[in-house]
């Protein structure tokens, strides 16, 4: 009887959440559980044999090709994240601290517009810019700076990093901007008042307070980047695959669903692990602020 009030509210809440929850269970949780199950089963020709094995994971961890691709995905994602966040911070800082309040939303609008245009076409356009007869090469040859088109700028990891850094730029700017906006401006004046230089105030006050935004930006960029499928296909020319391409090849082209599933689960675990580390860092920063 004592819990009567709480139960009525809980019932209403659960009734309301039921449709989206059931949908997520059916379309998300069930498929994820399926591939988790598959990842422990054996692969037969054109079918999956219902027999438990660690073999798929052993293969994921030991196969040199898989390892190379996994490592490449991690490195590319880490580089993209680093480049994107480093490039984004000054922009977020500029919009938050230097732009007049009434013009801030216009700047944010300008920053987000490119993000809403076709991802595929944006990625492809980097190929146009970087390609053999691309904008850079034809400009440089036209100006007589080089005789032969540069070949090192396309079909390699650098071009993948550049393309992805461009694609996820707004994702990094917005969380940092939000964190910077939340900083009480009088704290900075207090820092200055207590005799710190502008640079030291930035280092000791602004940057720590902006850290949750930076960490959020890092996660938001890292997660989709590590699973990107399109850029390695288009920019890498299919010759430098990343984890997503490998999963697709195993699942469909080679029809090895258990191994594909094990790869997908490993990728998810990697993402989860990185997220947990960063969320932990974020919590540390939040605790420091109290």
């Amino acid at each position: 009887m004592a819990r009567h009030g709480l139960d009525a509210e809980a019932k209403k809440g659960l009734t309301l959440i039921a449709p989206p929850l059931l949908y997520a269970l059916a379309v998300l949780a069930a498929p994820l559980l399926t591939i988790l199950t598959y990842s422990f089963l054996k692969d037969g020709y054109l079918e999956v044999i219902a027999e438990f094995t660690w073999g798929n994971y052993a293969q994921v961890l030991t196969d040199p090709i898989v390892r190379t691709i996994m490592l490449r995905s991690l490195i590319v994602a880490a580089m993209v994240t680093l480049v994107t966040v480093l490039l984004a911070f000054p922009i977020a800082y500029y919009v938050s601290f230097m732009v007049r309040p009434e013009r801030k939303s216009m700047w944010l609008f300008l920053i987000t517009i490119p993000f809403w245009t076709s991802y595929l076409i944006r990625v492809f356009l980097w190929k146009v810019i970087l390609g053999y007869n691309g904008v850079i090469n034809s400009t440089l040859t036209g100006l007589g700076i080089i005789d032969e088109p540069l070949t090192f700028i396309l079909y390699n990891v650098n071009s993948i990093v550049l393309t992805l850094a461009h694609a996820y730029a707004p994702f990094a700017i917005l969380p940092i901007f939000v964190a910077l906006e939340k900083i009480d401006r009088s704290l900075l004046e207090a820092g200055r008042d207590l005799g710190e230089s502008r640079a030291m105030t930035f280092w000791r006050v602004t940057l720590p307070l902006a850290m949750p935004g930076v960490i959020a930006a890092t996660l938001i960029v890292f997660i989709p980047t590590i699973g990107d499928y399109v850029t390695p296909e288009l920019i890498g020319g299919g010759k430098i695959p990343m984890i997503a391409n490998l999963i697709q090849v195993q699942m469909l082209a080679l029809d090895n669903r258990p191994l594909g599933s094990a790869l997908a689960v490993t990728a998810m675990l990697t993402v989860a692990l990185v997220s947990v580390v960063f969320l932990f860092l974020n919590r540390r920063f939040l605790r420091m602020r109290q």
Binding site: K11, G13, I17, T34, I226, M251
Partner: peptide, 30 residues
């Protein structure tokens, strides 16, 4: 409303935001 397992339920529903799309696509396809 407050209801039991609220954090877990909302977490599950929001997961696609942080899940690489290739995994959503592959698991659904399977």
């Amino acid at each position: 409303f407050e209801f039991p397992f609220k954090g877990g339920i909302m977490g599950l529903i929001m997961v696609p935001m942080v899940l690489p799309e290739i995994i959503v696509a592959m698991s659904l396809l399977v």
